[in-house]
Amino acid sequence: MYAGAMKDKRSDSRLVLEKVSHSYGAVPVLNDLNLVVDPGEVVVLVGPSGCGKTTILNLLSGYIEPVSGTVRREGIIRTVYQQDGLFPWLTVSENIAIGLRSVEDPARREKELLDLIALIRLEGFEHHYPHQLSGGMRQRVELARVLAGDSDILLMDEPFSALDYQGRLRMRWELVRLLEKRPHTVVFVTHDIEEAAQLADRVLVLSNRPATISRELHIEALRPRDLTDPAVIGAMKEILKELGLQV
């Protein structure tokens, strides 16, 4: 399923949360959370808004330290934010090249850049600035930037939530296609149940604050999955039930 050359690199990546608790002041956000993300896995966190999904990503990326418990990370981590994570003063090429900063050889860097632009199908837009692109195109550039270079792990914080519905559907296909070409370990946060069912190897449903994992759901079906795929519909039912939104 995945390109063999990437296999070794991926096997180096691992994210572990061990008995992690976190609070903002007196407000407990996470309570005794355990999570192991295996190499190459796509884990999707779903939960009510304000339940601490983004906090988990911030802990995984090292942006914040937990109040108690340990976080272990192996591999190079990149984050895709909800929107406007691109530098508006740089062109599409220059923004993607940020992801290639660690690549020393200029020839390799140049080739990688061209490959990535072709991969996200934005040939001809290399010298455009982000404000000249649509929301979906901007998110594709973001994806190219995080996939570039030596990254192993992608943390995605509701990356498609600023797009319209059809835009979101397209971007899910796009993400699946890109991950097939360039496998990465992914932790994806969303409130969109469809998105979770279409993308995840494993869905973790979080409870209300302080968040714990209330349900773990494995989805075996191959990607890309149609919205009407029985596996997707089955998973959505399970998630909805867990969230108390379906009887």
């Binding site: 942006y63 981590i77 990149r78 984050t79 934010y81 406007d84 994570g85 940020i98 992801g99 900063r101």
Partner: peptide, 13 residues
């Protein structure tokens, strides 16, 4: 300056 730029900057060292 939106804090997101500094977060991205931090991600890319």
């Amino acid at each position: 300056i939106p804090s997101i730029y500094f977060r991205v900057a931090r991600d890319y060292h």
